[in-house]
Nucleic acid binder design. Sequence first.
DNA 1: CGAAACTTTGAAAAGGATCAAACTTTGTGG
DNA 2: CCACAAAGTTTGATCCTTTTCAAAGTTTCG
Lengths: 246, 246
Amino acid sequence: LNGAVGSGNEALDLLLRRLGSASALSDDDRALLAGLVFECRRFPARAKIFEMGERPTQCFIVLEGVTSRYQLTRDGEYQIHAIQIRGELPDLLSLHLGEMDHSIRTLSECQLAFIEHAELLDICARSPAVNAALWRETLIDAAIYRASNLRIGRLSAVARVAHLLCEMKLRFDAVGAVRDGRYILDMTQQEIGDLLALSFVSVNRALRTLREEGLADMERRTVEILNWDGLVDRGMFDPIYLHMKP
Amino acid sequence: LNGAVGSGNEALDLLLRRLGSASALSDDDRALLAGLVFECRRFPARAKIFEMGERPTQCFIVLEGVTSRYQLTRDGEYQIHAIQIRGELPDLLSLHLGEMDHSIRTLSECQLAFIEHAELLDICARSPAVNAALWRETLIDAAIYRASNLRIGRLSAVARVAHLLCEMKLRFDAVGAVRDGRYILDMTQQEIGDLLALSFVSVNRALRTLREEGLADMERRTVEILNWDGLVDRGMFDPIYLHMKP
DNA sequence: CGAAACTTTGAAAAGGATCAAACTTTGTGG
DNA sequence: CCACAAAGTTTGATCCTTTTCAAAGTTTCG
């Protein structure tokens, strides 16, 4: 009956698109999901969403902006495990894993739609297809962590950045957010370093290298892919782990 | 009716212990799981189990030995994402994620019990508790990847090895495989390096450091914890991500 | 017993981190 | 709308951890 409802519809659209992309949802499944209540909330940049040790009773879908899942070592080292963009469901793990073992916060300003765990679990119990689709989402999260392991563990600084730009290109593609080979990655070079386990100086130099090699450019939070095949090659990127449709 | 049946019972015991440790299973749930058919097979060291690109129709539980989930970069760099030991279910992801995006093979000689996906999915459809417990297993796998990200991305060589020895101590504890602070980690230093993104030379030097500091010792595939608190501190280890019972 | 696999140690090289300083962009209040 | 401060980017120089290369020692296994 107001702006929040409109956002709720948008959240539902994104959810249906995302869950339906891998497995076919029946009309019944769609009807069940349509019954969900979405509580839309806006967050400023760098705002806490869930903290390590908490026991969330809601999860959320990202409507706009970038959220991050991260952790600190005891001596203050900061590692971003993963980021989430429009249409992604960062927090399904809290459905079945009581205590948060890491924290989630926004990087950029965000619009998020929250869903009660209880409602989602209820739908899972009624619909094996939705259950499978949500489970699948958490498995893709895990696949992204594996890719991150390989990226951090085995790729050079330049290759790490190239790999990330490839991954984000495909993830933004999935929600139609790439135009003319460009997408907005609303992160600082420091934050990219926190994600790739690089210093911001190394990120900056890697971006310069990619620009000089004519593969990609990033300026004012906008990434431009100049040579997709070349970038894929430089980052040794294989999209299989994203489990997207061909 | 033969040796395989005995192993099947062992597999069932391990499965019930593992799934029951977090959430209470009802007698009905246990009965359902007891109906599973376990196909027990022995594998030599370094044997392929599932390859990237395959679409497994079975998953398995490890009865004995160490299996590894790994990936190769295009230029031949090898990264082990995770290892699995007795009582663990390494391959549940194939339940809902058609194509394997990485490979699985044994490190040591192994005894594995295979279960048909179809049977497991059938039980999931009938029992929300088993569904939740299996889903939870895959979420803990993901948590271990996150821990691995932090370990590889932010810890020094010595801390990485210390962190791993702490993690494996708790995982072996869960199946009662630690005696007098000792457990058998049947991996070479090269393989530990493949897991921690270190050269085998660095692994060797890190182990020497831990020995010199009186924290832990590893000799002939046997790890001995000499000073648990010290080792936890050295590896900045926080067990929260394993989501074990207190 | 012998060969292969694995571990241990030393020395040199490489890649990225850190430190430092200038430059640019963004955001805020007057 | 401007001025200024804060935040972020860019580049150079140096340092440090880990890698690589090399070679000797040890264990395992047929």
